[in-house]
Design a protein around this nucleic acid. Structure first.
Lengths: 188, 188
DNA sequence: TACGATTAAATCGTACACTATTTAATCGTA
DNA sequence: TACGATTAAATAGTGTACGATTTAATCGTA
């Protein structure tokens, strides 16, 4: 019994005694003509977009957790390993570009991976500013066990691959749009 | 220049034009023909599902951030306020059920909202274990400013409402599936 | 009705994530 | 070629998340 799933919420929101409970003043920004059938609360509506995104991310990560834990990895660490399994040695900056993470997040994370013996951290000779992250043999070997994870997650979720694919496509579009937003400091 | 967008990655990973958004490298998960060598990297493929979810959540939250900051709210705090604006007084447990968060996360967050003067924290008379969170007049008043947020976010993202709707539907399905997974301790 | 089990919050410890700042190396150009 | 600007990591501080444990109140039932 992990989540009571709102069952006990019913009594709370049933008797919506609260007078100014939504829906009245919210109509004001809807340019409504005669149609009153849309007393849509923009705040309740909106919650679905960002809220669903955040909760979905947390929920799916929690599906990974028990699978990653025996490998000694957190989910962010797993993502870093995925990047490294694909592109052998990478600088911190490059990992950050791939994963959309920055140095304050990656620095301690990479130190943990290093002390777990999965990667090495070496300054570049070319450019002493750059820290080169490279897989150790152990780190490389871990890849084999990791290949079992994706099918296990898909199986547990019980959602069609095709559906996941189209979800990913939609998410990619959102990511692109969101990144463009904060790359545009000029507006507003 | 927020994200250097991989320009220096090109030497590392060939001509993958835009790795962080790559939709095409997950080319065939279809079992194609007689070739059993299946060149599809399940790890690269997989990264798209969870990875896209996590990055999308972070990216969209970062669109909210500059809008919420003048209101003095973080995004999780905004979600709690949304719950409260809808259902006047709630216990910590009820907020947690609505937002899929637990006490270790909510306790300090609610103390911050209280010290910001937006909510009150009172033990229930019915059941001294329950902590009742209630909006203050200031907390209630903040709702008006909050109504401007959703349209601003949608406008900035520049994505059709209908598209966001169907995304939300897909996400809800994923959330449901993921929650059912960790409600099922029996299997495996 | 007493007492073990359950429940609601809080607390502790660890690990991200983000803003702002700092440090050190490299670059551009006068 | 010297020197200010830029860049790559790291650090400091705040705020979630989550597992595990603790504390206090309530419940169930013998």
């Amino acid at each position: 019994m992990v989540s009571p799933t709102m069952s006990e919420m019913t009594n709370v929101q049933e008797n919506a005694s609260d007078p100014q409970l939504s829906t009245q003043d919210s109509r004001s920004l809807a340019s409504n003509g005669a149609d009153t059938s849309a007393p849509v609360d923009p705040l309740a509506l909106e919650r679905q977009v960002c809220f669903a995104l955040v909760v979905a991310a947390r929920s799916v990560v929690s599906v990974y957790r028990p699978l990653l834990e025996p490998m000694g990895l957190t989910h962010p660490q797993y993502l870093v390993m995925l990047a490294l399994w694909e592109h052998s040695p990478l600088s911190v900056r490059e990992i950050g570009a791939l994963l959309q993470l920055d140095s304050p997040t990656l620095s301690p994370l990479l130190k943990r991976l290093a002390s777990a013996g999965l990667v090495t951290r070496t300054r570049s000779n070319d450019d002493e500013r750059r820290l080169i992250i490279e897989l150790t043999p152990e780190g490389r070997a871990l890849r084999e066990r990791a290949t079992l994870i994706p099918p296990a997650v898909v199986a547990r979720l019980g959602i069609e691959i095709s559906e996941l694919e189209s979800l990913r496509t939609a998410l990619t579009k959102v990511i692109k749009a969101a990144l463009e937003v904060d790359e545009t400091p000029g507006e507003r």
